[in-house]
């Protein structure tokens, strides 16, 4: 009847994770790298929800709830860092941001 199983969702999750990884590896704008990181986090969320559903255990969904909250905190701190960096360097291009010292 319902031919979609756990492995289908996991394949979608893995593919989305790899798309995000590709963005992190190849893009050169810090903001787009950050968006790709969000994609990877979302892929992990999808895998957790699928596992939770097919194992009949609610803990996976609780984990995703926590992940979403931590991701929101992470995004706010990261974007504040990017804004602070831009003020000092006038650039968000990773090749211009090769030294850690401001």
């Amino acid at each position: 009847m319902n031919g979609v199983g756990l492995e289908h969702y996991l394949i979608v999750s893995a593919a989305l994770f790899c798309i995000g990884l590709f963005g992190v590896v190849t893009r050169r704008s810090v903001l787009v790298i950050y968006m790709s990181l969000e994609l990877m986090l979302n892929a992990a969320n999808l895998a957790l929800v699928a596992m939770s559903r097919f194992n009949g255990n609610l803990d996976g969904q609780i984990m995703v709830f926590f992940t979403i909250t931590v991701a929101a905190a992470e995004v706010s701190v990261g974007l504040a860092l990017i804004v602070a960096l831009y003020r000092k360097r006038q650039s968000t291009h990773v090749e211009d941001l090769t030294t850690m010292k401001l």
Partner: peptide, 26 residues
């Protein structure tokens, strides 16, 4: 996809937090 997995609460949270807050921040 979350709705298809019967994770209704997380689907709502996903839209509210990500599409509502995170993207606006971006």
């Amino acid at each position: 996809l979350f709705v298809l997995l019967h994770a209704f609460f997380l689907a709502a949270v996903q839209i509210l937090v990500y599409a509502g807050a995170v993207i606006v921040l971006f």
